[in-house]
Design a protein around this nucleic acid. Structure first.
Lengths: 335, 335
DNA sequence: GCGTCCGATGTAATCGATTACACGAACCTC
DNA sequence: GAGGTTCGTGTAATCGATTACATCGGACGC
């Protein structure tokens, strides 16, 4: 690999000039610049990142942590992150925390060690050591949250209005004439689940003549299956089920089939996220569509603003969701 | 952030000693070592990565490129990669190439610039510049391929035996009594698709009394839908369809429903990959199960062996696949 | 008691860039 | 034409680690 010294020698200038040609070309006279560029081309020179970042304290890397990269919801957000980051000249360091606090701390340490310029975390938990950092630096902490809204963390975030989205899903069901509605939430440790539950309860308070049946899942297909089986075994059973993720809704579909019921004839079903499979299920799933790529883009933008010092407050960006009505919801059959 | 100088001062030793305590503790006398460690703790010292990698020419990073991170097959492989890499003390730089050659080259440049110690690429295309590198360095090029087997690339790889796996899927269908079988391949530019097709044709040659109907898809749900519609419209239509990915099989399921047919009563269906949804479809999908996490682990191991100089040949590792028979396949109904 | 060797530690060069500061030339201005 | 700018470029310090080589003191052999 050619170094800046090689280029300088080849072009007959000092290393300072080479450096300037590359980072502040307007400060170099045209003929010199041309000579340097020619040398750069000839030698195939590219600046050594380690040296650069040692000197400048910038790495050009963004660390992104996610509880489970194989979850299609997260992997679509990540895709948006990668896209926006690479467009801005940053590269993405991926951390899969597997929902384990220990691994979250490991990645937090990478940020503290300055192995990345900033951290984007998808999920609800901010490691203690970073919470301190965020408290100390305020709006200038290079930490951004995606998908959740937890103002008490004190870090910027991009997410949808989970409360309203959940309320809309419920309104849709009430509007169709459902009154006995079962809900499968995510873990209530996550604000996102709590927000959605708040929205559900608000809608129920306005419209529901019947108590809600609420079960807690963990966003997995299996938990959707299990919790929905429980809901369907109630007497009387719900005529509609609202799951806080599409994966759980897939499990719910299976539960409905197992009980010998039909969706939507016997039980209507609403999911959340609109992952790529939602529209291809049988029946196609009514669900709350989240703009995953846009969330990814937005968290990157928030982070870049912090890194560029363009901020003085902690910003929370709410992106638009959309209730997508497909064939899994219908009016309840009177019986 | 504390530097090695701070630690040295605090412990009353030279920086050389601090460095040795951290990387070759046996060369330092016990009392000194203890004093240094105490200082390290007290100051919360962690070596600066940039400085370290500038000096040692190692980054501790593995670059992983993937055509589409939001594809659950790849995201599960990535998960395995991340797991194995972080267990070995490496971190993962993620590159989503979106099937675009230009982006592949961009990431290739990162490797050439030594921003990562090695590259793992999932997919079939090795950028030209890296092909040169691989040719020049032979088995010591820090480049590994996952999922595909292309000996002509000259880089190590981990994958299943696609040809045999596909043949087994066909044997399963022939064994059930099917003779008119439709196949939806992936893009034939990828060796993986060609290998599977070879297996399919070999099985057909042994067992098929009827010509195969082969359609080419692109692994997407939509292409599975479209190509299967085409196959079903043939006269006579196939009684079974084999798709080279589970996502295409999801599309195929939809095609079968659209034509008013039942799976498996009218048409049996076999997929490939065994992504997390395969078992939860209606009907649960018979498919060739690939060990995605194991592929991820294995490519990392191959790369680490190269990085450690523990190799003198280009190794190709074949991992075990498994035909998982579920309810989407059954004997054809005579008539 | 002297020379040798070894283990523990320190000194300082080095990796490859960036950038504050210095310098000289050319060009104005009055 | 003396003094002041501006412009283009070079000199050299610096970032924070690693490591070859030097040094020193003590143990050991004869």
């Amino acid at each position: 690999m050619a170094t800046i010294q090689d280029v300088a020698r080849d072009a007959g200038v000092s290393t300072a000039t080479v450096s300037r040609v590359l980072s502040a070309p307007e400060r170099v006279a045209e003929p010199t610049r041309a000579r340097v560029m020619a040398a750069v081309e000839r030698l195939g020179y590219a600046p050594n990142t380690a040296a650069k970042s040692l000197r400048t304290l910038r790495t050009g890397k963004i660390l992104v942590t996610v509880p489970d990269i194989s979850n299609p919801f997260f992997s679509q957000v990540i895709r948006g992150v990668e896209e926006a980051a690479s467009a801005a000249g940053y590269s993405v360091l991926l951390g899969d925390t597997r929902h384990e606090e220990e691994r979250e701390e490991q990645y937090a340490a990478m940020l503290r060690r300055k192995e990345a310029d900033g951290l984007i975390f998808l999920g609800h938990r901010l490691p203690d050591s970073l919470a301190e950092l965020a408290a100390a630096l305020g709006p200038r902490a290079p930490i951004v949250n995606g998908c959740e809204f937890s103002p008490e963390l004190g870090v910027p975030s991009a997410h949808i209005d989970n409360e309203r989205a959940a309320a809309e899903a419920m309104e849709h069901l009430y509007g169709l004439g459902h009154s006995r509605i079962g809900v499968v939430t995510g873990p209530l440790a996550s604000p996102l689940s709590r927000d959605r539950l708040t929205g559900v309860q608000a809608a129920a308070a306005r419209r529901g003549r019947w108590a809600l049946q609420v079960a807690q899942g963990d966003f997995s297909i299996e938990s959707g299956l299990e919790q929905t089986l429980g809901l369907l075994d109630a007497d009387p059973p719900p005529t509609a089920v609202f799951c806080f993720s599409d994966e759980m809704a897939m499990g719910a579909l299976e539960a409905i089939r197992r009980r010998g019921l039909k969706c939507p004839a016997d039980v209507s079903l609403v999911g959340f996220d609109d992952i790529r499979y939602a529209r291809h299920l049988d029946p196609p799933l009514t669900t709350v569509s989240q703009p995953m790529p846009a969330i990814g883009h937005e968290v990157v933008r928030l982070l870049l603003d912090v890194l560029a010092g363009r901020v003085d407050t902690v910003r929370h960006v709410t992106l638009a969701h959309r209730l997508v009505i497909r064939a899994s919801t219908a009016a309840p059959t009177r019986g």
